[in-house]
Design a binder for these strands. Structure first.
Lengths: 344, 344
DNA sequence: CTACTAGCCGCAAACGAATCCGGGCCGCTG
DNA sequence: CAGCGGCCCGGATTCGTTTGCGGCTAGTAG
């Protein structure tokens, strides 16, 4: 009962060797003859020997573990990113330790400490939206633990072992609006959330710039600051429909509000996309399920996770002594044109 | 640069004490005077001392870490459960290490080994659907590491430190069908996936038993074995609509196929729920977004994760020597009646 | 026959913290 | 004054691995 698992010294004793030799044999070191290696390997097999990672990590100072800190593991985006992270990390031989900040800055801080105590080799973070000071990342930087921010990054926090990966929201929005213009739309409305959030700010800017670049006017009454929910979208759309000259397209800063807009359009006996084209942002799962199917912008969530891990790995391999911090990576979003915006 | 973090011996030296005393002081041991405790705590604060969890874990044989192994972190269900697990684990002071099996039995096995090498104190597993032999869990059982299966469990694998938590699919289905009957439906169709999967088997059985319990006949032509996707649902529904006597309700074993069914009904110029009521299963996020909103069964994903951790904790605390293995926990699902099945 | 090299292997010291087993020192009691 | 018992503390060991260094043996060259 309660069978303690075989340790390296157990192997040593039963084979009449020293622990060092066992260790070297198992790691295929040159200083051990093939004969003994074979014996060791066979016994290890028989006893189902598995090295104690804790001990190894302690000795080597490397734990083979990455820490991940996200606001939460719900919704669409974060699970996808985490999936990308976990997959890539597994491929590179890392374990993954996961924490949630619950959008709370203090929990974020605690979790950062926790991860550092666990001797993780690198940390991947997406900030809680209540985080405004970054003292807790100072310790990470000081100890030269590679740190990668993803999606929700802190802009003015750099260091030789700090980097970031995010998506080009501006570019995504620009593509959307350009696409709508190509479909013949000229009065394109925009739903946006509060502009102090990066994502909305950048998408909003992309919207404006795309309009200008194509010589279209920017009409402030077409820009709706609304709650980015289904209801919010419906309400905003209703308001737009009351305008003397109604819009012929809507670019919503997220998919949920876009769905709301579609429903409002439909219940006003108008057609999507014929009368009003609609495009969302994020490529949520349900965009494929609506009628019409919603055009959206894919955020490459999984790719983001994968890239973040690769970036971390690069820092890990090159060490902190390189020329300048690694450049942040900006992923190109991908416009997915579906029924809701295809006038043809 | 590369500031090694303060260790317990560093504290000892600068205070002129021994490491043992520091250790005891920090863990508030009786053998240390309040005065020294205060000094130690203060210095620890100043140096931002954080204990090295690896070392402590190695020494104590307890890592404060739980291992989680899921098929993948995508879709709706698993992220939710993982969220529940992570949240509850954090509350109980555990770290969480996450792996994905990618529905591959061999990876599952590798990851189980990995988790055990990482000296996790307990393991939470949802099986890969390709897993048919369970040898890799044998080692877990032998070492008396608490093991909790959730959702996808292995039925005939018990032990003093093995348990499971799952949802009562049968009960959920029974509730759905009863609800439909109460709405006045008498010809209730059923979409199901392959019956060798527990979830479908149990939901199917719930369907049959509910019908019988209310004195309704079971009509095999109303039971559709179809691909449980949107397309599959649409196709199945089309077929049903061709019947001489078409159904007046559909209970689909998942939400996606239910959505497909609704679309088929609508494009046949029939009304949901007036002509045909539809109920899905899983309470996916998009059930709130369809028109009409889809009735479904909530699987209590988060609760499942939470419960699983609590179960593990209980095993951990009581030790392996108790009377019999802990009883598996079966969660009650919750029927959510929305527009798609409310005839009133 | 000596010397040197290569091939294998063991010794011992780490890594950082927890703990068993004491050991001083002080004060109290008989 | 001897003895005893608390109170605080330190030394040494332990967890399981890794690793620098040195040692032993056999074989080969000089």
């Amino acid at each position: 009962m309660a069978n303690r698992r075989a340790s390296i010294t157990d192997l040593a004793k039963t084979l009449g060797l020293s622990p060092s030799t066992i260790s070297r044999a198992l790691s295929d070191h040159d200083d051990v003859s093939e004969a003994t290696k074979a014996r060791v390997r066979q016994l290890a097999e028989e006893l189902h020997y598995q090295p104690n990672q804790l001990a190894a990590a302690l000795r080597r100072g490397r734990s083979n573990t990455l820490g991940v800190l996200v606001p939460h593991i719900t919704g669409h985006f974060f699970p996808q990113v985490v999936h990308g992270i976990a997959t890539e990390a597994a491929k590179l031989g890392f374990n993954v330790m996961i924490c949630q900040s619950n959008e709370d800055s203090r929990q974020e801080q605690k979790n950062i400490d926790l991860l550092m105590n666990s001797q993780v080799e690198g940390i991947l973070v997406s900030l809680a939206n209540t985080t405004h000071s970054f003292g807790h990342f100072e310790a990470v930087r000081q100890q030269n633990i590679p740190l990668v921010f993803f999606d929700r990054v802190v802009e003015d926090f750099s260091g030789s072992n700090v980097s970031a990966v995010m998506i080009d929201d501006y570019q995504g929005a620009y593509q959307v609006v350009t696409h709508l213009i190509e479909q013949g739309c000229t009065r394109i409305a925009h739903f946006t959330g509060p502009l102090h959030l990066n994502i909305h700010k950048n998408r909003h800017q992309g919207y404006r710039d795309a309009l200008q670049a194509h010589g279209l006017p920017i009409d402030d009454e077409l820009i709706m600051f609304c709650e980015m929910s289904q209801k919010g979208g419906t309400a905003a759309m209703r308001q737009l429909l009351k305008l003397p000259q109604r819009p012929d397209a809507v670019f919503s800063s997220n998919d949920l509000a876009a769905i709301g807009a579609i429903q409002a359009v439909k219940s006003a006996r108008l057609r999507v996309p014929k009368d009003i084209a609609v495009v969302g942002f994020s490529n949520e799962m349900f965009t494929m399920l609506t009628e019409p199917m919603l055009s959206s912008v894919d955020q490459r969530c999984e790719q983001m996770g994968k890239t973040a891990v690769q970036l971390l790995q690069k820092m890990l391999k090159s060490g902190p002594n390189r020329q300048g911090p690694p450049k942040p990576i900006v992923l190109k979003p991908k416009l997915l044109v579906r029924e809701s915006s295809q006038k043809r």
